[in-house]
């Protein structure tokens, strides 16, 4: 997993609420056995016509946002399925950070496993960031995970909260499985104890 410390990039405004995982990556693209290559199909049905041509009005098709690295989104981003293809597609497109008032739990969790930082901000802050993002390509926002701040193109800075463990893993690009396997003896003793207490489990 790539480390995440600071990021300065173009932020794409997506004010729609309840952007779900079927919008982020429709099911026909889940038939892959790889993690990569999904970026071209990110937001596929919002982004392309049936004949494959681009839908001009869609934000990521606009010249200013084609290289966006941040999305500022409406409430409840990532609701729906557990498909990790959603963060894989975002990452493959080049998105490293999504900012919203709220995220669906599983999507939120999946982001951290893939080096994407989801940031929860109150509505009034999201409103400011959304307005800033709408200024276009010159409006580059800066996300500093170490300092836990987001700064707009005109220098307004806002703090955000993030779980300490997740921050640590993201900053250092750590693999969860490796960390957990360091606790193998605790898992062993849990299993021994459980075999007596709940032998059917």
């Amino acid at each position: 997993m790539d480390k995440f410390t600071t990021l300065t990039g173009i932020a794409a405004p997506m004010p729609l609420v309840n952007i779900d995982t079927d919008m982020i990556i429709p099911k026909q693209f889940l038939k892959t056995i790889k993690r990569s290559g999904l970026g071209v199909n990110l937001f596929d049905e919002m982004r392309y016509n049936l004949d494959g041509t681009e839908i001009e009005g869609f934000v990521l098709n606009q010249p200013a946002y084609r290289k966006a690295e941040i999305i500022v989104a409406g409430d409840n981003f990532g609701c729906g399925s557990s498909r990790e293809h959603a963060p894989w597609a975002l990452l493959d497109f080049g998105i490293r950070c999504v900012i919203s008032t709220s995220f669906a739990d599983i999507f939120y969790n999946n982001c951290f496993k893939n080096g994407i930082l989801p940031i929860v901000m109150p509505q009034e802050v999201v409103d400011v960031l959304m307005a800033d993002a709408k200024k276009g390509a010159n409006a580059r926002q800066t996300v500093d995970l170490v300092a836990q701040t987001v700064t707009t193109s005109d220098g307004q800075s806002f703090g955000f909260e993030v779980d300490g463990h997740r921050k640590h893993c993201l900053i250092n690009g750590l693999d969860d499985i490796g960390l957990t396997l360091e606790k193998a003896s605790a898992i062993d003793s849990f299993e021994k104890k459980n075999a007596v207490l709940h032998p059917w489990a």
Binding site: R83, N109, N114
Partner: peptide
Amino acid sequence: AHGIGTSEVEHVLATQTLIQRKG
């Protein structure tokens, strides 16, 4: 019972555990 992403599927396969915070 709850859904997990593919990274967590791998985590459970390898360790039979999940890293969680209580809801």
